[in-house]
Amino acid sequence: MNDLVVRNSAEVARVGKQDFVTFYLADQLLGIPVLAVHDVLNPQKLTPIPLAPDWVAGVLNLRGRIVTGVDLRDRLGIAKKDDGVKSMSIVVEHNEEPYSLQIDRVGEVLSLEDTLFQKNPKTLDPAWRSVSKGIYQLDKNLLVILDVDKLLEIEIDKVEAA
């Protein structure tokens, strides 16, 4: 499946309907374009890395590949989890490196009309605005579309600048 994934997958083209993998992070529903998702994993053994930046949750072994885990909560400014439930993983790729986004639980794959898409409200938290592509209005809640490239790029730049 990995090989078939489109490379520039983060682009959300506006042609009618889009498919997204949705997931929950502290009761907020977030989504990533289907084609950007390489894997969805059950809780994995994550090796913490001392001295790494806070948003690095650790590393895990994915079929022989070492994948860096990203603590989305830290990245998005949400309080850390303390209920002891392990997080699931959504594996994406950025610059040919695999990253695992640690999420609470995975939702469904939704196929959404473009008409439901809205740009980010101006009052959105800057931390979110920088990594959000926009919001879909669903029946019961709002779906924030995550821009994975931006999310990971910013962090890497920060580290390099340091």
Binding site: I49, N61, G64, I66, Y99, V159, E160
Partner: peptide, 23 residues
């Protein structure tokens, strides 16, 4: 991983025989 490149104490990581990743 590129993000961790700056940490001088680590020179790499590996997967052990039991499947776990260590630095």
């Amino acid at each position: 991983a590129p993000i961790l490149k700056g940490i001088s104490v680590y020179s790499g990581n590996t997967i052990l025989g039991d499947g776990s990743v260590i630095m």
